[in-house]
Deep mutational scan, measured.
Amino acid sequence: TLKVHYKYTVVMKTQPGLPYSQVRDMVSKKLELRLEHTKLSYRPRDSNELVPLSEDSMKDAWGQVKNYCLTLWCE
């Protein structure tokens, strides 16, 4: 499951381990945003700071799954 905080919160079913490009595509379609305006980030467990997502950091983000849910933020 993927939970995304935006102006409102959406929850989507997804497969764990998807690459950033696929996750961003899913989120942009769900929120009806243009792909270039979809910026995603996540919060590591040991931090209060949001970390921007990229293809490289997506593996780390999937490591933050809690209760089968990855929580992301969209700007």
Rank of each mutant, 00 (worst) to 15 (best):
S57P: 06
R45Q: 13
S57V: 10
P52K: 06
Y68M: 15
G17M: 04
K7R: 12
A61K: 04
Y8A: 08
L18T: 11
T9I: 02
T38Y: 00
A61T: 06
M58A: 06
E49W: 03
V65S: 14
M58E: 06
L70F: 14
H37Y: 09
V51W: 02
L31W: 07
L2D: 08
T9P: 08
E55Y: 07
L40Q: 01
L53K: 03
K66W: 05
Q64H: 13
L50E: 01
Y8W: 10
T71Y: 06
M26T: 05
A61V: 02
S57K: 13
G63T: 08
L50R: 08
T38L: 13
K13S: 12
S54W: 03
K39E: 00
G17K: 01
S54M: 03
Y42F: 08
V65Q: 13
R45L: 14
L31R: 01
H37L: 14
G17L: 08
G17Q: 05
R43K: 14
D46G: 15
D46K: 03
K39M: 11
Y42C: 07
K13G: 06
M26L: 11
E49V: 14
R43I: 10
P19F: 10
K13M: 08
P19V: 00
K59C: 06
Y20W: 01
K30H: 08
N48S: 13
S47G: 12
V11F: 11
C69D: 05
L33H: 03
Y68L: 13
N48K: 12
Q15W: 11
K30W: 01
V51E: 09
R45H: 14
V51Q: 05
Q64N: 12
P19E: 08
P44D: 14
V10C: 09
Y6K: 05
L40C: 02
S54P: 02
H5F: 05
L40I: 04
V27H: 03
R45K: 14
E36K: 05
S47N: 07
K59T: 10
S41A: 06
S47Y: 07
R43Q: 11
M58K: 07
T38C: 14
K39Q: 11
E36M: 02
Q15H: 13
L35P: 15
T14W: 02
L35G: 15
D60N: 07
Y6G: 09
M58G: 02
Y8M: 08
N48F: 10
S57T: 15
Y8P: 00
E49P: 00
V27R: 03
E32A: 13
G63R: 11
L2S: 04
P19T: 14
T9H: 02
S57W: 02
L50M: 07
D56C: 02
S28D: 09
E32Y: 08
R45Y: 10
T71D: 15
S21T: 11
S54L: 00
V4P: 00
R43W: 08
S47T: 12
S47K: 12
S21Y: 12
T71V: 10
Y42D: 05
E55A: 02
K66G: 11
V65L: 10
K3H: 00
N48I: 10
E32H: 13
G63Y: 07
H5N: 07
E49N: 09
D46P: 08
K39H: 13
R34F: 03
Y42N: 03
W62V: 08
C74A: 14
D25S: 11
L33I: 14
L53H: 10
S28P: 04
L53G: 02
P44S: 14
